[in-house]
Computed example of a mutant assay.
Amino acid sequence: MYARPAAATAAALLGVGALLLPTTTAHAAAPRSTGAVQAPTETDGPLVVAHRGASAYAPENTLAAIDKARDMGFRWVENDVQRTKDGELVIMHDDNLKRTTNVEEVFPDRAPWKVADFTAAEIAKLDAGSWFDAKYAGTRVPTLEQYMNRVEQNHQKLVLEVKKPELYPGIEQDTLRVLEKTGWLDRKHVKSKLVWQSFSEESMRKVHALRPDIKKGFLGTPSVAELPEYATFVDQINARHTTISHGYVAAIQAMRGPHGKPLEIFTWTVDEAADARRAAGYGVNGIISNKPDVVRSAVGNED
């Protein structure tokens, strides 16, 4: 994830107390329930989500990273989705391959090494583990289908982020097709195992129109005044931990989302115990972390 630059962040934090809307007003602004979407929080404390898998301990967005999260006892993981030249969806945070693979060595004449300029078969040749630690040499970039199957095999749950959808027209429908193929759009998965998030308001609106039953989170820090509108198409506001306050969290949770349930907030990327305790003190519903074990120890949540 990256921070959403914006005046919206400043607006959200300036005068939050003065901008807080009464609960009754907020509820009236949001639509009535159109289907049951169950909150993912499974304990009294904030849910702990392993960011890009347990990415402080294994190469991010790989099967090794979600296996590591599983071995550490974390049921919720987060990932990032991009699209290849030939239309395959792969798990990759950046829109180019340089940082987390050996693409410059394998394809030295293909700068700037954008994901969208390579086929799935070409990306499958890359080493996505050596940059992190030599013991992960040979680790591959998984396709979304491979990733979903492994999450299912691990009995895990997923916060799925579609990265830069403006670069990939139609990626929302493509992602839905993979989720359907891998069994992730049945009632059991949609009800309690899946959250779809993005920094793109337009993309979130598209997903809501296509599958209103899927739980969705907007990545960013909209102003309190903007929250009633967001509450018409997302169930969560997922903000960087440095942009939130107790008042802002309370303002979010005073709203009701498109399924008639209180809005939630997951905050990211929290890797220090002090930051985790502060966020938990604000009352956030979830904390996304590269070091989920540090957060778990700090807030006493066993996921």
Results as ranks from 00 to 15, higher is better:
G217E: 04
P262K: 07
T221D: 05
N290K: 04
P292D: 09
S223M: 06
E202T: 15
I288A: 04
T243P: 02
G286T: 02
G217H: 11
F218R: 05
A251Q: 08
T243R: 09
R256I: 01
Y282G: 01
G260M: 02
E264T: 14
A280D: 03
V249R: 05
E226K: 13
N285H: 14
A254N: 10
G247D: 14
F266T: 05
T232G: 11
F199D: 00
L210F: 06
M255K: 08
G220C: 11
G286P: 00
L219E: 08
T267G: 01
Q236R: 06
H241I: 09
H241Y: 12
K206C: 04
G220Y: 07
V224K: 01
S245F: 02
R240T: 12
P212L: 11
I265M: 11
M255W: 13
T243H: 15
I214S: 07
W268S: 08
Y230K: 05
W268C: 10
V234T: 12
D275R: 03
E272C: 00
E201P: 00
I244W: 04
P212C: 10
G281K: 11
L194F: 01
D213H: 06
A280R: 03
L263V: 03
P212G: 09
I237Q: 04
P222N: 11
Q197V: 14
E229N: 12
T242V: 14
H208S: 14
R278A: 11
V284A: 01
W268F: 15
H246L: 12
N238S: 13
K215Q: 15
I214P: 06
N290Q: 06
E202R: 12
T242F: 09
L194T: 04
I244R: 05
A254E: 04
